[in-house]
């Protein structure tokens, strides 16, 4: 008996290694479902749907032969990932440049902050005029919404690099590229990754905007058609998918940051 108990305890030893925040997250899921359920009871049908109806609708949509949801999901993910990918490819080098060249950064700062504060919706007519209503326009809208958080956070991370470390690098004969690789980039990484997470969230909102204001495709278009026909269970099923995409993308980015951060710095990171 004792041996069996000992064996069972050793089999469950991995549970002790699960971080506390993961347990708390798991605990939050039923709490949120309860709250959602209570909220649904107080709102008349046709305006809201509770968790049971929503999850049932989600299951039916996923198993539907016409694959309407899966096709819409693919369209949305393509636009979203191309948009935030392009924002990272442009925003990180541009942020590094503005952070390293202080005069250039200071000169362009009001313009970059002004552009960041401009609602992307306001630029949609101009974008349609320039590139039409197709996928390019959607990607451009997502890119514009996601670019500035990456750029501004990268620039702030570079500017926040300890000047004493930069001076140490110079005094030990490290060239500009060596200093960038071994001092500036590691120092700017937490800020840069926070910018990418913000960009992922802003980009997802912009994806819906793009799908509603240009040629109507993807989950955005599906959301509008379900809303117009008062099918609130399916409507909230799509909302849940958006929430999962947002949480999933930021989760992946947090994991990448964890991989890129050396162990002594990990406690400070997200």
């Amino acid at each position: 008996m004792k041996t069996e108990l000992r064996q069972a305890a050793s089999d469950l030893a991995w549970l002790a290694k699960v971080p506390r925040h993961v347990w708390l997250r798991l605990l939050l899921v039923p709490l949120l479902l309860l709250l959602w359920s209570a909220l649904a009871k107080g709102i008349p049908d046709g305006y809201f749907a509770g968790p049971y109806l929503t999850l049932r609708a989600l299951f039916l949509m996923l198993t539907d032969d016409r694959r309407k949801l899966l096709i819409a999901l693919w369209e949305t993910l393509s636009v979203y990932l191309w948009g935030i990918g392009a924002a990272a490819l442009i925003g990180i080098p541009a942020g590094l440049l503005l952070g390293l060249c202080r005069t250039l950064g200071r000169t362009l700062s009001p313009f970059s902050h002004g552009l960041a504060a401009t609602p992307v919706v306001a630029l949609v007519p101009l974008i349609i005029l320039m590139v039409g209503l197709g996928a390019e326009a959607k990607v451009l809208i997502v890119l514009l919404a996601a670019l500035m958080p990456v750029l501004i956070a990268t620039e702030a991370g570079v500017r926040g690099t300890d000047p004493e470390l930069i001076e140490m690098g110079r005094s030990y004969g490290m060239g500009a590229l060596t200093r960038l690789r071994h001092i500036v980039l590691p120092a700017a990484l937490p800020s840069l990754m926070a910018g990418l997470r913000l960009a992922a969230i802003a980009g997802l909102v912009a994806t819906v905007i793009a799908e509603l204001y240009t040629a109507m495709t993807g989950l955005g278009a599906l959301l509008q058609s379900l809303g117009n026909s008062y099918r609130m269970d399916s409507y909230f099923a799509v909302v849940v998918i958006f929430a999962i995409i947002g949480a999933g993308t930021t989760g992946i980015l947090t994991w990448i940051e964890h991989l890129l951060t050396p162990p002594p710095e990990r406690r400070r990171s997200h």
Binding site: M168, R170, Y172, G173, H182, T261
Partner: peptide
């Protein structure tokens, strides 16, 4: 000229916390 002829040791060490002990030394041997 910075990085040539003299090596400076600082009061607060200015080590790179994200590089291992060995790497902190190897870096100046680029």
């Amino acid at each position: 000229v910075a990085g040539r002829g003299a090596a400076l040791i600082f009061q607060n060490t200015r080590l790179l916390p994200w590089r291992r002990v060995r790497e902190n030394v190897e870096l100046v041997l680029a």
